[in-house]
Design a protein around this nucleic acid. Structure first.
Length: 546
RNA sequence: GGCGCGUUGGAGAAGUGGCUUAACUCACCAGCCUUUCACGCUGGCAUUCAGGGGUUCGAAUCCCCUACGCGUCACCA
């Protein structure tokens, strides 16, 4: 078989060669040790935590080493492409603070190693494919879907390995004339890799996360080019990451199974293999079962969920860092206030077993992030979020910035600030009672106080209430009321002898608290009252008495 | 079914032959502080590293077997 002739028959219009592209995309001039990484999301309209997870690793690896981190759009499957999905990806990454040095952008792209959208790289792939045909390393396959399905069934029946290989590779040894005849008829074809593997040997691949991997060599004649001339992931990955001079390929462990294919292709092309970093899958608990986070069942997989809930990008980033390098937390404690980008991230510290996604932990980290923020910043970010997701509350915030900052700061001064806030949607809930428009009276009164007693307490409170009092004078009056009504002034006394009192000072305080704030969980009552103002406080209490 | 990856408390995990009576953080529980809730503090929470065998003076760490979980086997990525 004259492979040159075959290559010309298959790709008559391709006159660019392997060398053309090698020259166009020379090795990058970077200092030793600089890493080049990328993420390659598909524009399916759904961007998830896994994308961010891998993006963060790539970003850290590149930027920590003085390297390059870029965005490549893997749009080789036109069936799954969704309009506007590239924007979604870019905006989400930007929102979560992932910065690219080159690659696709909203209105085009930047960087010298483009195009960064795979569909636009068709000619490059075809040049490389043509070269492989010339080497006798690739061949056209005219098998139809039906034929392949039938083949698979036979393989199942005979308990053989699935796939296109060995004697199952019907088109592997087609003669030039047979191929020409197919072409003349206009039969569609895919281009397959001619694997020289048998599966009898093992290969060794180094993985930066997992160490040395010993795997069975590839023996499948997998598809390089689909019938529309667009490459499969496997071929695109090898060509792109070589030509874009990627040094570290960060991707999910679902790619481990096809790693031998990729390695074989790199070797056949005569290219240096990148260093692979296969990350663990993100899992969650589903009842008793542990399973991979799923797009259909788990809303928290979508990045849009975190935006809608108002999670802080920094908190998500820090959470992912703790998952990836668990010594991050110790570093955080030792370096309070230091930007998390200063943390020395190490790929070899990453875990290779599946990771349970823990919203409780995220909440804790979020609280820490917010508690460290000044009120003005909280105001700005809360407002920015509310403008999109809760315009009613945004309007309230904008009415009076000073008031908003004041209520945000209640209970946050001193060495032991409250950590009440963890997401912006939750913050709206938490702050709702400071505004009449969002105030909701819940029946959260202490269970041991009946309605009659409630009324008595509130009536007495209203009578003695004086906004000129300071905190201690104010509380002395509350105590006075409690004593007159027979309540225990020390919660412990009531706890010890619950039959001797109708309740304790705690219950009295809480009756007042619920009347004013609508619930039992709130910062210091007197500070709240001062912020709300005498008129509102009196009105709310009066309403409860009636 | 083949191939592959994994398995240390409820969770993230540290630990790769003796510094480990298994770190740290979250969650949980108890106590303290406190006008509530929170915050904070103190203590508790794996006699044991999936199970079983072996190597060794000594094993979570090395070897073998088993079990379980997960991934993958497309002209999807």
């Amino acid at each position: 078989m004259d492979y040159q002739k075959l290559a010309q028959l298959l790709f008559p219009d391709i006159d660019t060669t392997r060398e053309t592209w090698e020259e166009k995309y020379p090795p990058r001039m970077l200092s030793a040790g600089a890493k080049v990484t990328r993420i390659g999301p598909s524009p399916t309209g759904f961007i998830h935590l896994g994308n961010l997870y891998n993006a963060l690793i790539g970003e850290r690896l590149a930027h920590q080493s003085g390297g390059v981190f870029f965005l490549r759009i893997e749009d080789t499957d036109n069936k799954r492409e969704v309009e506007g999905a590239v924007d979604v990806i870019i905006r989400a990454m930007d929102f979560f603070g992932v910065k690219f040095d080159e690659g696709a952008t909203i209105d085009g792209e930047t960087g010298a190693y483009g195009p960064y959208r795979q569909r636009q790289r068709k000619e490059i792939y075809q040049s490389m494919a043509k070269w492989l045909v010339e080497q006798g390393k690739a061949y056209p396959c005219f098998c139809t879907e039906e034929q392949l399905a039938a083949m698979r069934e036979q393989q199942i029946a005979q308990k053989l390995n699935f796939g296109y290989y060995g004697q199952w590779a019907a088109c592997r040894d087609l003669s030039y004339e047979e191929i020409e005849a197919h072409l003349a008829k206009g039969d569609p074809f895919v281009l397959r890799f001619r694997s020289d593997g048998t599966g009898e040997h093992d290969i060794t691949v180094f993985d930066a996360i997992r160490g040395e991997l010993v795997m069975q060599e590839n023996y499948q004649d997998f598809v390089l080019l689909k019938s529309d001339g667009i490459p499969t992931y496997h071929f695109a990955h090898v060509v792109d990451d070589h030509l874009m001079r990627t040094t570290h390929v960060v991707r999910g462990e679902e790619w481990l199974a096809t790693l031998p294919m990729h390695v074989q292709l790199f070797d056949t092309m005569g290219w240096q293999r990148p260093i692979y970093c296969h990350t663990a899958v993100l899992e969650k608990m589903d009842g008793e079962q542990r399973r991979k986070l799923s797009k259909r069942k788990d809303p928290e997989l979508a990045l849009a969920y975190y935006q809608a809930e108002g999670y802080l990008p920094t908190a998500i980033w820090e959470y992912l860092l703790t998952v990836l390098n668990s010594n991050y937390e110790e570093w955080r404690i030792a370096n309070p206030g230091v930007d998390c980008h200063q943390f020395p991230f190490r790929e070899e510290k990453m875990s290779n077993s599946g990771t349970l996604f823990d919203l409780d932990k995220l909440r804790d980290i979020s609280k820490e992030v917010i508690v460290a923020m000044p009120a003005s910043q909280i105001y700005d970010e809360l407002l920015a979020w509310a403008n999109v997701y809760n315009p009613q509350f945004a309007a309230l915030l904008e009415q009076d910035r000073d008031y908003a900052e004041r209520i945000i700061d209640i209970g946050r001064s001193g060495d032991r600030p409250r950590k009440d806030l963890w997401t912006w949607s939750q913050a709206v809930q938490f702050l709702s009672f400071y505004y009449d428009e969002t105030f909701q009276q819940e029946d959260d009164y202490p269970a041991n106080i009946d309605q009659e007693m409630r009324r008595e307490i509130l009536t007495a409170y209203l009578k003695t209430l004086d906004f000129a009092d300071d905190n201690s004078a104010w509380f002395a009056k509350v105590k006075d009321i409690a004593q007159k009504k027979g309540f225990a002034l020390k919660p412990k006394d009531y706890k010890k002898n619950p039959d001797q009192y109708p309740g304790s000072i705690v219950d009295v305080s809480n009756v007042i608290r619920v009347a004013i704030t609508g619930r039992q969980n709130s910062p210091d009552l007197w500070e709240i009252s001062q912020a709300l103002g005498e008129k509102r406080v009196r009105a709310r209490i009066k309403k409860q008495i009636d």
